[in-house]
Design a protein around this nucleic acid. Sequence first.
DNA 1: CGCTATATATAAGC
DNA 2: GCTTATATATAGCG
Lengths: 214, 214
Amino acid sequence: MDKKRMMQKKTQGRKKIEIKRISDESRRQVTFSKRRTGLFNKASELCVLTGAETAIITQSPGGRVFAFGHPSVDCVVDKYLAGSSSVLQENVAINQVNLNAASMRENFNQKYMEISKEIEDEKKKKVLEDQVEDGDNFWWEESFENLGIEELEKYIASMEQLKDNIMMRADEMAMLRNSSKFSKNEGSDGGGTIGGGDSTLPDYYPPGFNFGSG
Amino acid sequence: MDKKRMMQKKTQGRKKIEIKRISDESRRQVTFSKRRTGLFNKASELCVLTGAETAIITQSPGGRVFAFGHPSVDCVVDKYLAGSSSVLQENVAINQVNLNAASMRENFNQKYMEISKEIEDEKKKKVLEDQVEDGDNFWWEESFENLGIEELEKYIASMEQLKDNIMMRADEMAMLRNSSKFSKNEGSDGGGTIGGGDSTLPDYYPPGFNFGSG
DNA sequence: CGCTATATATAAGC
DNA sequence: GCTTATATATAGCG
């Protein structure tokens, strides 16, 4: 019996293609979208895995611009540009204050653990209850639904608090530094390299792992 | 006899890994190299297939900068910067992010660890060994010595980044409360390109693709 | 760097 | 967008 013949493959599966311009516009657009997504995801993984700082800017055939950046596009680009200007090369010997680092780290972690754990617990409950649908492995997007807005807000609140604390220290340090050493860039506002912190430019996109914007 | 038993697999093959900072420095460096190559190749294909203009700038954990650009990194970056700093912004669409809960939660604490640890190591090293050997690449981050503040800035940046991601997620959730699923996305417009400069020159890359230098 | 054995990314197609 | 069947990218190792 020709069962095999009846068991036709539902799709042809991925097909090999030549790496050359796709002539069909529609198909080209689709490919751009899919591959751009894949590219950004790869970049994201690269950053997380190795701690690399990466920025990607790409313009679709349709003319739209998409960008990815970690910590932020501007941050990476700025450094890149600053570096190529060549004047920036100096051997600034530094010995820097960093007592705060320890305590800060502690504080940061502690706060995180605290909140994280709390949320984790709540989440587990929900998952057990909600998991009626697909019981297969979950893909990132999915786990998100289990996080309530309230929980997210906790994260946000704690982060803002920590941010404020750190910024305050940054200011203190900046002042100390100014009076004793010289700074590398003109802007030791602590914003130049911070995504979203620089006020000299409109903030086009969110800091961090950003996708898009213009 | 039991040839099968002798026919053991030569290697375990690719193993699944968690997308989180690789602790071992050596392994991290290797992964960076491999994935950077893969990322650049993907970008290259994207350009050829869709005619997109793309630029990638990335800094290895070791501090070296690598870049990919088509038609050129500078070209793309210049356009990008031109478009974002002036009044040229008309049809600006706010776009977005895509980090999921798991990844985010992981990142929150990981990002912190990553940054703090790396910065500390970096600091120690830099002070002790200040010899930059390579001639074809330089430390655009030479001034990384300003770690006191630099570090704080990163902390802040990472927190803002996470906060923004979470907030966006929260907004999204609020709106999609009814839907069962949602997709990730990106998108935006703008208009620019990036340029890149780098160090160790890649050996092979399709014509028309530049690997700039600092 | 070269080799697998697998984990992933995706070309087609609905 | 969401699937399915494959083409690719790569983790661990020598």
